[in-house]
Design a protein around this nucleic acid. Structure first.
Lengths: 200, 200
DNA sequence: CGAGTCGTTGAACGGAATCAATCGTCGTGG
DNA sequence: CCACGACGATTGATTCCGTTCAACGACTCG
């Protein structure tokens, strides 16, 4: 767990434990007392809300290394269901222990604070991105956002996943990448590495 | 300022002040030392990033009562430009004063924490919503999210704004509302109030 | 070696953006 | 006080782009 900041901060708490879930298994239900917050060691968790008529909304998808239900730190009960989308291993941190450490340890607190603030920033930029009409332009902006100082982007997971993050079909994503390369706006270094040429 | 939690918590800090901006005026520039965080009293602020080629990305739009550049609390300098999209009045809070209060006042800290956590939750649900293909269904889900326990939604601003939040043309938004009403899924109480009938 | 996933391209269809026009409301200034 | 313009709300028609369906090669993994 290199990129799981929750694990780094709280794994040594009393009562912290690893739980294994089968695909579809339920971690907690709406209304349950919010005693734990989580991070995904391996697999994928979904926050789902169900209506009487059976329809469902997915409120959040957490992949490996991501925290889950951390908003539950500040509410007495879970406001939706937590389920495993795949076979999943999940770290469970006792809510009270986490809160106590946040209260007593300024360094830890700052880490969590700045992480949250960064998350808000990132999510907002993704949302604004979705406002971009053209799919190709959307991909272009996204790449610019992800690029480091040198205009380099290294995708960590299969490209399909990023198409989903951008809210488009994977075919569209591939086509957009091809178009951008054809137009000389980006350069493809290898399967998962790109460089933005007309950069900031 | 009823719904401006930043103002409620920090308006009495030393060095806090109100600034008036004309449309297009710049509040701060990328690279400037991040000495202030903000909230919008009236008008609209945008976080913009510009490329050499002149193209721009909007990373965030903050309306009345919303905080702005709060992530700057944890970075030494601003990472983008802050500009007024309209004639705007903005509260400026000295970064150091805010940080000091966060450190010393547990209640204040908890308010900010839970506000941030709630924001993350809300933004994520909006993002997932964008994944919904059908525009009409997207509006339906959005209304369900916004509805109170009784299924009631009261829009505060002109409906056009919400179309933007959902990432669709306002015409599409109106049509979706009309369709949902025709199908008996929602009920229109008046110009800005709706009720979801097939509720959770 | 076969099953499954990822990456890629082609073709067709459908739905949302866009353009356009109308009406009502509100505020402003002559 | 009324005329005017700006904006919000609404509906119609057309165009176009992205989804969807389909098919295929490459690669990985058990």
């Amino acid at each position: 767990m290199d990129n799981d900041y929750f694990y780094a901060l709280f794994s040594d708490l009393d009562g912290c434990r690893l739980k294994r879930l089968k695909k579809g298994e339920v971690l907690f239900q709406q209304g349950d007392s919010a005693d734990y917050v989580f991070s995904v060691k391996q697999g994928e968790l979904r926050a789902m809300r169900y209506s009487r008529d059976g329809s469902a909304i997915c409120l959040h998808t957490a992949g490996e290394g991501e925290s889950f239900a951390s908003a539950a730190l500040f509410t007495p009960s879970y406001h939706c269901n937590g389920e495993a989308a795949l076979k999943t291993e999940v770290w469970c941190y006792p809510r009270e222990g986490v809160l106590a450490r946040l209260d007593s340890d300024p360094d830890c607190r700052n880490r969590v604070f700045s992480q949250l603030a960064g998350e808000v920033r990132y999510l907002r930029s993704l949302l604004e991105l979705r406002g971009t009409v053209s799919a190709t332009e959307r991909v272009h902006q996204y790449l610019k956002l992800q690029a480091d100082g040198k205009g380099l982007i290294r995708f960590q997971r299969p490209l399909v996943n990023y198409a989903r993050e951008l809210g488009m079909a994977h075919e569209t994503f591939y086509r957009a990448l091809a178009d951008l390369e054809k137009d000389g706006v980006i350069e493809r270094i290898d399967k998962r590495q790109f460089r933005v040429l007309s950069d900031l």
